[in-house]
Computed example of a mutant assay.
Amino acid sequence: MKTVTALAPNGATLLGTAGQGGSTPKKWLLLRAVEEAREPLGLKSTSLNVLRAMISFVIGDQISPDQDDHHVCFASNAAIAKRTHVSVQTVERHISALVELGLIRRVMSANGKRWARRDRQGRVVAATGLSLMPLSERHAEFIEEAQRHADRVLEFTVLRDKVSTALARLRELVANDATISDLMVTARNALRRKPDANVLSELLAEISVEISEIKRTDSDNLRDSDNEIEGHKEDSLNPIVKKEEYSQIQVSPDQMERSFPRLCSELRFARDQAHCDRLMDDIAEYLRFGQTWYAMKSTYGPALRFLVLGYIFQRAENIKSHQAYLISLISKIDQGDIQPTALLTQNSK
């Protein structure tokens, strides 16, 4: 049975291992972290190409302070321009941008030139130029920034999808209401552009209110037309009733072990419910559920959380985005498309 640690990709190391026996990431992994954090850093593609060319001039696979030529690029701007396929003036401009962003550091001589001094064996013993050490020093920062940006993009995408789905639902419920038509036009125009998240949230709230009003009106009309169903409430549409039902889900130990052996293996030595909750939080953090998991914790009981976490954890390697999958799964459960106990059946197959 694989543990959380065993599920990590080959060669992956925890950020906390730096300086505790963990090896420094190779120089191209350092570049990848910057590339993934490109948007929040405000990096242009040409700046990345210049940085890539500079890294290619550094000796060895790692950016290291041990020797100057392991972190200092002493190639001329002309050499960098040739490798990047841009002009020398463009290289100068983007080097200044990289220095300003703190991605590289100038290590210049008194005359402002870049040079390298070699011993009789041809080894570089001293060099001046552009140090790439900030890439190594800020590696963890870039990874965290990239993850925060990915979370923001995902949250925005989910919000946009919710507005689109709500708009489609509203279109089904109304025909030729002028007020509603204006709202639908506004929403469609917003979705065609790249709207602000606040604009989408306001649109979603407005559309949801309109849908609720239409459903309430239809329900009132239905009760007025048929006395036999006076006061009837459909529990499956009542979110309070839903949450109460979800909190009462019962799952036997045999069902747990049979359906979610991986999660059960991780929780087997939990001392109490509080310890079990902390272990589940750790797994959710490993899967990068983000705030979606904690929002779910404040809404649903431990049984449903166990079912959803076990279901996703059991098939973690086959899911590209665990947080997006969690959002989709909870949405389907809320809408009644999937019954929570069906997750046990699907994993038992």
Rank of each mutant, 00 (worst) to 15 (best):
E202I: 06
F306T: 12
D334I: 07
L15R: 09
A166V: 01
T165E: 13
R305G: 11
H232F: 15
I80M: 10
D235L: 14
T341W: 10
K332I: 00
R106Y: 02
K26R: 12
L51C: 09
G21Y: 03
E36C: 05
T90Y: 05
V34I: 10
N347K: 14
K243L: 14
V251C: 11
H322Q: 15
S181D: 14
L130M: 13
R93N: 10
R152N: 03
R38H: 06
E228Y: 12
L167N: 07
Y246P: 01
V88N: 13
R188N: 09
F260W: 03
M280S: 08
G301F: 11
T186K: 15
S64I: 01
T186G: 01
L344G: 07
S236H: 14
T46Q: 12
H71F: 03
R120P: 00
A81R: 03
N77H: 09
K320E: 08
A197C: 00
F74L: 09
R118Y: 13
L343C: 10
S212N: 04
A33K: 11
S201R: 14
R123M: 11
L154P: 06
E245R: 15
D177H: 12
E317H: 11
A127F: 07
D68E: 12
S219C: 02
R83H: 11
R38K: 15
P302A: 02
N347P: 00
R105G: 08
D220C: 05
A12K: 10
D272K: 07
S109Q: 11
S136P: 04
I104K: 07
D61N: 14
L130G: 01
L191P: 08
A316P: 00
E36H: 04
L307A: 07
S56W: 01
S331K: 13
S109H: 04
N111P: 00
D182P: 00
F57K: 10
S252C: 12
Q62T: 04
A274W: 05
P40Q: 03
V86P: 09
A150G: 06
T46H: 01
G310A: 05
V308R: 07
S181V: 02
T46A: 10
R169Q: 15
D272P: 00
E230I: 11
I249E: 05
H71R: 08
L14K: 10
Q20T: 04
L48Q: 01
F74C: 01
I214P: 08
I338F: 03
A342S: 15
A342W: 13
L98I: 04
Q346L: 08
E213D: 15
